[in-house]
Nucleic acid binder design. Structure first.
Lengths: 94, 94
DNA sequence: AGGAAATAGTCTATTTTGGACTATTCCAAA
DNA sequence: TTTGGAATAGTCCAAAATAGACTATTTCCT
């Protein structure tokens, strides 16, 4: 099952969705990305599933490796979180 | 001494400088910020010194608590890292 | 179906963290 | 200058997160 361990917040989930979408948009596999980052596939997988949190700098490195613009990524993330918060307001969870 | 423990890329140092600068610009103490975040002063101190990493979402929360715009923060960070990289190119470390 | 590529999951030694408490630094008023 | 309080840093250690080799599953072709 997806995301069973450590992330938690809805916001972090939005981040993960965006991160993965960017890699896929660049038509890269986790192995491709891992090589560019000089990391393992396990590492990339864990990051994308939220089992390993990414800080601002690591995320920037991901963006660079993927060929995505980091400031734009952050802006998209911010907007997407706003969206998800709005959606939650309309259809509250509990 | 500052930053003797865990993070410590030049980039992360740039991030920390910016994060603290934003808090100070908002004229908030670590205790003020801690209260807004519902965290302890120790936590804020550790985050600002890089003893505790902040992920993308946590950083956004910091920005919101400080009253800073997150996408702008990311853009500033990106630019500042570029700067520091350029400086390093001119005056290499080793 | 069958195989290979892609991704997820497991395991454990190592590293990071949370937060109460303590120590230090800073700085303005006396 | 001293002094006192505000602000920040540092300590300790049980608990939680992480790394990465290895294995298992899932996904996609043909």
């Amino acid at each position: 099952m997806a995301q069973s361990k450590s992330i938690y917040s809805r916001e972090y989930g939005v981040f993960l969705d965006l991160l993965r979408a960017e890699r896929l948009a660049a038509r890269m596999t986790q192995i491709d990305l891992a090589k560019k980052l000089k990391e393992t596939q396990t590492f990339v997988s864990k990051c994308e599933r939220g089992e390993r949190r990414l800080d601002m700098i690591e995320t920037r490195r991901f963006c660079i490796a993927i060929g995505a613009n980091y400031p734009e990524f952050a802006a998209k993330l911010d907007a997407a979180i706003e969206q998800s918060a709005a959606a939650k307001r309309i259809a509250p969870r509990r």
